[in-house]
Amino acid sequence: MKIYTKQQLALRNGQDKPEIWVAYQGVIYDVSSSRLWKKGMHYEHWAGQDLTEELPDAPHTEKVFEKFQAIGQLA
């Protein structure tokens, strides 16, 4: 899997580039196809960042990432 920096991930926020990516536990997922991530925002969470620390507060588990393609690793 390709390795991306935090800066490269940050550009995939739904604003700067058309891709909408998030990271969880070092894996980067493409959430562009999700209607819940349109415009790079999902409730109070922004795309282009590592959501590992924020997931415990979510109403769902990490299984939600199984719906999305893992496209890389966070450096």
Score class of each variant (00 low, 15 high):
1 M>C: 04
43 Y>S: 08
40 G>N: 05
25 Q>R: 15
54 E>F: 11
45 H>K: 05
16 D>R: 03
9 L>Q: 05
54 E>W: 01
39 K>Y: 07
71 I>S: 04
38 K>Q: 14
59 P>G: 15
22 V>K: 01
44 E>T: 12
67 K>T: 13
27 V>L: 15
49 Q>R: 13
20 I>L: 02
63 K>E: 15
47 A>V: 01
15 Q>I: 11
27 V>H: 11
43 Y>C: 07
4 Y>A: 08
50 D>I: 07
63 K>L: 14
57 D>L: 12
35 R>D: 03
7 Q>L: 05
61 T>L: 09
27 V>Q: 10
16 D>Q: 07
27 V>S: 04
32 S>W: 08
51 L>P: 03
15 Q>H: 11
68 F>G: 00
49 Q>I: 01
68 F>V: 03
28 I>P: 06
30 D>V: 01
42 H>I: 06
28 I>R: 01
10 A>L: 09
1 M>H: 10
12 R>N: 05
74 L>K: 06
2 K>F: 10
26 G>Y: 06
65 F>D: 00
16 D>V: 02
50 D>A: 13
6 K>I: 02
27 V>A: 13
30 D>G: 01
62 E>Y: 00
3 I>W: 07
73 Q>W: 06
30 D>R: 05
22 V>H: 07
5 T>I: 03
52 T>G: 02
49 Q>Y: 01
62 E>N: 08
26 G>E: 05
12 R>W: 05
60 H>N: 10
47 A>L: 09
67 K>H: 04
40 G>Q: 04
72 G>W: 07
75 A>F: 12
3 I>R: 15
40 G>L: 00
53 E>I: 06
9 L>R: 04
6 K>T: 12
73 Q>F: 11
57 D>R: 12
71 I>D: 09
16 D>F: 07
20 I>E: 09
49 Q>G: 11
37 W>D: 08
30 D>W: 02
10 A>V: 00
3 I>V: 14
64 V>C: 02
56 P>I: 03
61 T>N: 06
18 P>V: 05
21 W>Q: 00
40 G>Y: 00
46 W>S: 05
73 Q>M: 14
11 L>S: 03
17 K>F: 12
71 I>Q: 09
39 K>T: 09
45 H>Y: 08
67 K>D: 07
